[in-house]
Amino acid sequence: MKTLVALSLAATLALSAGQAFAGEDSELVIDGETFVTKLDAPADSPLAEIISGWRFRSNETQELQTDDFENPAMIFAEYGEELWSRVDGAEGKSCADCHGDASESMKGLRASMPKWHEGKATLFTLEDHINWSREEHQKAEPWKWESQEMLAMTSYIGLQSRGMPVNVATDGPVAEWYEKGKELYYTRVGQLDMACANCHETNYGNMIRADHLSQGQTNGFPVYRMKWQGMGSIHRRFKGCMDNIRATPYKRGSDEFTALELYLASRGQGLSVETPSLRN
């Protein structure tokens, strides 16, 4: 009677390459909540439809994001939750000491990033915000842009806006940044002489060697990328793209990348925030 039967095994080794793109018509549902992964673009948009990167992935990869237990990105969000209440810096304070419950205080923040910061009179990414608060209020050392801690915190804060529509401001003081980002998007650079638009505007949906080109939407960042076997920021992805076209990449956190981040977010207005998402 005590016999146990192991009936089948499905070990995900994160190695299998997707081949079918049937997933383009699937809907992303997490915990019963349907996410907006596709919508009609407004008349002034260069795109006909706004499509989340999730739709360009294979069925297997898409599926992993529908279950928070299977989505390895949640490991980072969990770590971020730990860091949220961990005391750091000379002031002896944690994030929670000032901001309380992140599910309330941080709700919606990710959806509006990057955003103008009054105090510093500049455009702030989420990373900038976190480090500013660490230095200003906690008197703690800033985290490195791509550190595990920073990625965990941006994942955790981003998670509080999951499902909310991307809604960034592009007017007022940030108008100049928006224009700068737009200029970068359409400027050909590097030995391959390519602009972002050459792949992500005119050729999304097509293959570039083994990659299925997406629109380069930012609504899921930071993302857990199978290829990276870990989490990465939007700026890491920008750098990767620039390396691929054999251009000299800008630095993470540079004005150029921050401006580009704003412009890209504006092209994805209305998509649901998927942070922390999973891509291959």
Binding site: L4, V5, A6, L7, L9, L13, A14
Partner: peptide, 28 residues
């Protein structure tokens, strides 16, 4: 309950944060 139900040997090609799913029937 101390009896082997499932086991797997993992090798260096397995990606970070390994996820393993299996199906089992328990008698009690």
């Amino acid at each position: 309950n101390g009896e082997l139900a499932f086991s797997a040997d993992l090798l260096p090609a397995v990606a970070a944060n390994p996820y393993i799913e299996f199906v089992v029937a328990v008698p009690e």
